[in-house]
Nucleic acid binder design. Structure first.
Lengths: 213, 213
DNA sequence: GTTTAATTTAAACGTTTGTTTAATTTTGTG
DNA sequence: CACAAAATTAAACAAACGTTTAAATTAAAC
């Protein structure tokens, strides 16, 4: 078997695990579930990853890598105004979370319930680095007297929290807006532009120095 | 054994289960864990509740009852201005979520991962009824030309999402603000006033008709 | 005090869990 | 082809799981 096929197999297991962990939770998913759905022998999971927990760690490491670079670039950019940056941040995170909603789902469960200190550390580090970069964007806008004084950490909590809430409340919104719950595409098409508009509008009012109290 | 003692024992099991479910997740908690920590015989859980899943249902039914009444009363109140109502809603939900953060934690995991249609229905109903009442408050403010046009559902998502995000990101904020993670009291004292201020400020800017675009 | 019902117990039930084993097949290399 | 390494397999492992049993204890009723 060639190297690429081997990588593919590993990646395939990761993808299946991602789906199942997101759907049924880490503890609600057995390695047999994963093996069966991935069409691999049960023992292959230990063979590739060592254990169920290591599989989760591998999944997180694999999926979590790519965000920070984009945000760093954005925060350093000199040609964009702080308002532009906020808009771009909103667009980026909305897209990101809907492209990776399964992974995002796993992150939120693990963040609360993991027994593995390694995984907890991993998640906190990712979140902290994200937060630091965005802090810079808002602080820069404040220094330029464009943004008013706000609680930066909680402002970020509102952005991330809104996103998480919407992805996690899919069943509720599907019922409200009469969308078939199985129809991921329709949901996404309906919700993402709305979400972008809402977050930008809210941030614009919230950060605008003209609205300072 | 008297009736009150029986109720106490049942309630005691529920309380222990609440703690463990919140801490380790439903699937991550065994009925033996619960029985041991509650100092009752393993079989008592089946005896009182029938099954582990029924225990969870009983827990949700027990804890979810009391919110709606207060919100209904508030939304009907004629003497308060829409702004007052928003402030009161924020105060109420911040307090509520920090008084019941364990239950809130269970609700968010179950909302995504429950295999029980009954529990899912239960949660969606609770959320829908809450949303309906708050919709009325915002719609009333809009009718009175005090609030501007906003996406009501997503505005609520921002409020609830912020709250959930803050309670679920305790470890992160504890590290940021240098609080011992075990020190629940300090965390709460630090975060709740800040959260109330932030949410009120954000909602004021977001809803104010003067900021309409 | 006796009888009946409710409660509590220890033990066992059959499954399912994550992981390991040891044998087998496939692969890459000289 | 031959050989070593890697990949894959079916089977087995002990431990933990949710639940049930049947006996023992306590409480309530008469």
């Amino acid at each position: 078997m060639s190297l690429t096929e081997k990588v593919d197999k590993r990646a395939h297991i990761l993808a299946i695990a991602e789906t199942l962990f997101a759907e049924k939770g880490f503890d609600g998913t057995s390695v047999r579930d994963i093996a069966q759905l991935a069409n691999v022998n049960l023992a292959m999971i230990s063979y590739y990853f060592g254990s169920k927990e290591k599989l989760l760690e591998a999944l997180i490491e694999d999926r979590a890598g790519y965000t920070i670079g984009i945000i760093e670039e954005l925060s350093k950019n000199q040609t964009l105004t702080p308002w532009d940056k906020i808009d771009k941040l909103v667009d980026f995170y909305v897209e990101k979370i809907f492209n990776n909603f399964r992974f995002h789902c796993i992150m939120s469960q693990q963040y609360n319930h993991t027994r593995s200190p390694e995984i907890k550390e991993l998640i906190i580090n990712i979140k902290t680095r994200n937060l630091e970069q965005i802090k810079k964007v808002i602080a820069d806008g404040q220094k330029k007297k464009i943004f008013c004084k706000v609680d930066i950490e909680l402002t970020m909590a509102s952005v991330f929290g809104t996103l998480t809430h919407v992805t996690n409340s899919k069943s509720l919104y599907c019922r409200l807006w009469k969308i078939e719950e199985t129809d991921d595409v329709s949901y996404r098409k309906k919700i993402t532009p709305r979400l972008k508009t809402h977050l930008k509008q809210m941030m614009r009012a919230h950060l605008d120095i003209k609205n300072e109290e």
